[in-house]
Each structure stands twice: as C-alpha cells, then as structure tokens.
Simulated scan of single mutants.
Amino acid sequence: MTSSDPTSGRPKLQLSDDEWRRRLNPQEFDVLRRAGTEPPFIGRYTDTKTEGVYQCRACGAELFRSTEKFESHCGWPSFFDPSSTDAVILRPDHSLGQLRTEVLCANCHSHLGHVFAGEGYPTPTDLRYCINSISLQLVPTAE
C-alpha cells in the first residue's frame, strides 16, 4: 500500500510545483498542493452513494472506500476511516489559529482535508474525515 518513506518522511511520489501544475488544473493544485479548501456543498462527491474506491486525484493512491463514507451534512464528503492505516498521514494544522488535524495522501503528501473526533456521529470510529471532493477520484465498483 502507499505510504511515505519511513526513513525520510518524504512522499514516494515527489514532483516539482511545475510538474504538479501540468498534472492538475488550477483548482486542484490550490487544494491538493497549497492546502486550499473547496466551497461547501458544491463538490462532486458530497452526496454520491456510488459504491467504489476513492483515490487521490493527484497520484491515484487508494484512500477511502464507499463502505466508510457517511452523511454528515457538513458540505464535504465524510468518511469514518481510511481504506488502510497507511493510506493517509495526519499532522497538526494551526493555520486558522486553532489546532486541527490535516489529512494528507501518504503517497504524494497532497492535502485532502481534515479529520475531527468526538462529534457524536453514529460511526464505528467517532471520527469524521472531512475531505475535499476535488482531492478525490471515485473508481466505481464493477457490477
């Protein structure tokens, strides 16, 4: 599975900003590479019920599965757990003058969103991975 290099903390996939700009459109670059946030309730996957695997839009690594997606009504897709323990990296984020936990793709270190705990959602983990739709690519399950 995808993870960062444990000896260096560097992503497996490393590209220059120019290379990322060639791969991503300007909105994707802003969110994935500059930790931007898409506006709430407009994302492609906010309300989708399609079964499948959610991959990182930047590198294609598997991040989440539809079986862990739930309706939080927060304006962004919400998941209660990543597809595997090494699919994402969590790190402290003090960017808004408060402590939050940022979620990054373990393979390329692209920004995905934030994770929140203890909000009382009826999920097995009591976690809400609040993820930007623009950071994801859904690969539907074959029927």
Rank of each mutant, 00 (worst) to 15 (best):
S84D: 14
P122G: 09
R33I: 06
L138T: 07
S84F: 03
S4E: 13
G9D: 05
L127N: 00
P26T: 10
S66I: 02
V31S: 00
D86G: 15
T123S: 00
V88H: 04
G120H: 04
L15C: 08
S95G: 09
E51G: 07
D47Y: 13
I131G: 06
A35G: 03
S72P: 02
D126P: 07
S16T: 15
T37G: 03
R44I: 05
Y121G: 08
L136P: 02
T85W: 09
D17Q: 14
T37N: 04
S4A: 07
Y121A: 06
P11K: 01
N132D: 08
G120S: 10
E28A: 12
S16D: 10
Y121I: 07
I89L: 14
F79S: 02
E119Y: 01
N132T: 10
P92N: 13
G52W: 01
P77Q: 04
R91P: 01
L96D: 11
F80H: 15
R100H: 13
E51L: 15
A87T: 10
P39K: 00
G9A: 08
G52A: 05
G52H: 01
L15W: 10
T141W: 04
R34L: 14
H73Q: 14
L127R: 00
D81G: 04
R22L: 10
S3N: 12
P77I: 02
D86K: 13
G97N: 06
Q14N: 10
F80S: 01
N25C: 10
I134Y: 10
A87C: 09
L96V: 05
V115W: 03
S95D: 12
S83R: 12
P40H: 06
R10C: 14
S72T: 04
D81M: 12
E71T: 15
C74F: 05
T125K: 07
G9N: 10
S135N: 09
A35H: 11
M1C: 09
E19N: 10
E28P: 03
S133D: 01
L32E: 03
A61W: 05
T67N: 13
H94F: 15
D81P: 00
D81L: 11
P11H: 07
T37R: 02
D86F: 07
E19Y: 09
T123L: 03
F41L: 01
S8G: 07
L136R: 00
G9Q: 12
T141G: 05
T125G: 02
G118I: 13
H109N: 14
E102R: 09
V31R: 04
S3P: 06
L13P: 01
H73P: 00
S66T: 08
S110W: 09
G97Q: 06
A58M: 04
R57E: 05
C130G: 00
V31E: 05
R44S: 12
R65N: 11
T101N: 08
P92S: 13
L24S: 07
